[in-house]
Design a protein around this nucleic acid. Sequence first.
DNA 1: ATCTGTAGCGCC
DNA 2: AAAGGGCGCTACAGAT
Length: 679
Amino acid sequence: MIYLVTADKELFTTDIYKIISVEESLALLNPLKIVGLDTETEGLDPWTKKLKLLQLGNRNFQVIIDCFTVDVLKYKDYLESDRTFLGWNLKFDLKFLFRNGIYPKSLYDGYLAEKLLWLGYPAGMHSLSLKAAGNNYLNIELDKSVRSKITYSDLTTDVIQYSADDVKYLEDIIHKQWKKLYEKNLTNAIKVENQFVIPLAYCEYCGIKLDINKWRAKMKVDQDIFNKTVGNLNNWVIEHFPKDSTLVGRNLQGDLWDGFDAEPKCKINWSSPKQVIPLFEKLGLNLMTKDRATGDMKKSVDTKVIKPQQEVSSIVPIYMEYKAAAKVVGTYGQNFIDQINPISGRIHTNFTQLGADTTRITSGGKDKSNNTEYVNLLNLPANATTRDCFVAEPGNKWISLDYKGQETYLMASIANDKAILKELTEGSGDIHSLVAYMSYPEIPRDTPIKDIKKLYPELRQNSKGTEFGINYGGDANTIYINNGIPLEEAHRVYDAYMSAFKGLKEYQNFRRKDWWDKGYILLSPLTGHKAFIYDYEELQEIQKSFKEPGFWEYYREMKDSAPTCETVQKVKYFFKRKSTYEKKSINFPIQAAGSMCLRYSMIYFFEYIRKNKLFDIVKICITPYDEINCEAPEKIAYEIAKVLYNCMVKAGEIFCTECKLDADISYIDNNKLPDHWVH
DNA sequence: ATCTGTAGCGCC
DNA sequence: AAAGGGCGCTACAGAT
């Protein structure tokens, strides 16, 4: 049965639906403890578009509320009750409810559950839509084409019918979905995600204020630098390849001179690696490098490749400067101004909860259907000029907290490495110095760790790269490539590292096997989040074929004589995949723990905002991985900072059990720069 | 004109 | 056997 709540005088009860009052609808809905929820809106943006319909109900009946003629706030108490509201991608509906002053408390998001079930699978391998779920779980067809009609049409019967269907089947779909979650031991994980979606939606809804004048000034500077570097590159070429140079006609193929008698003009498109590669090779640079994804050798003008060869040609540093400038102009310029919402005056991005296989959120993207683009707010350049453009509203203070050495502490705790933990908790707290001491015998053995930063800054700096590389599965070869030291020395450093940090070694050895034993990477033993090995069966099949009689004999025979044959390729593929998963298996739990700290921090913080009715007053602005930036009225800013600090520490205690994961109130002021944003 | 894949680089 | 994890955006280049 479908009920319609509307004050539209032209609508009457039909065979399909019955018109009832708000009070009648609440009386009907009141007994439900689990309620399907959906909304239909004029568009994607809660600031410029209106909420059109609110649908509530279950498989027996559905209530459609016409929000254009009925005050949706009459349902506020109901929606903020302890009932659990079922929905699909509720982050979207939440933002429209927030805009209407309604803040639901208890949710179950089938879309997030579907993401959890398919975490680890490449995008597009499995549809996560409600329509697909209707198909897969109930074998029914849910018609979503009505979505496009709803913006333009009145409340026609088919619109009402289909809008009702969106809540009608939710309970049955989610019931079946729950069985899958239970089988895969993901019921705790979905509880976390269902709580996290609320503060995450709130963060999108709040957005962040950009100081347009500062941003335009920055753009001007960036553009000038860009123009200058392009000019410098062109001049360099003209200067080094005079008109009579044989290089011109033969190797640059007319790209330098524009006509026979014109002024010299460089026609190289510097943003085209394809055009830069032949020039740089002619200048004597070695551009060969290994493609990390394919493992094949290729030519590249990547900074990593050319930076060590700066002495080969004086164009190299100019080109590096150019690339940095091009990136800034292209990515961090006008698009940010275009993103300022005309109503809120702020930039609202789109976050993807569970965007990464590690459970990290991602930011950005575009919705082609509505021609909507979002900027990525999680990779803003970490320099003062850029970050200083993001400010608090007048009367507010910007509050910035970040976890202190989040991944180092989490890794030490998760690996339970006593040596690292000891240094963190009782020693210098500076792991880079400890690593330097362990790695370099030339540092006298009686040197206190705390003095190394001052006495051996270079060795300590090298150790950072070593640490990072090894912690995430790299080995001597990684150090050799990263630090540019002889392979032999790299081996010595690696061995020293591993014998000093036995807990880490043990952790890594365990992690290298665990994914294969389970068929997934256990991201967090506490929440049960998992990244599935999407090609696990394929890899098992390949491994089985290795056991066929004579396989390795045949392989050894073919390896040199026919390296492209199926057998050799299969072996190569298998070990490449295996190696990738081993490294993921080492890294993911650390990354996931950081991600969980952020989730719990935000959940706790939002609880406080709810309890103290600070919606729209305390704004959560931007949350890059290990920091939370919010703004609050000056009067309460210090109190809010303290609350947020406690939330972050409390979250840290759950996931970092062997040492204290602390947070820094790194900044609290208005329209000035957070220290930690400057590097 | 529009789509897709790749290279390169911004962040943690 | 291969040799450091996770993302998104912009430009180019080639295909349609």
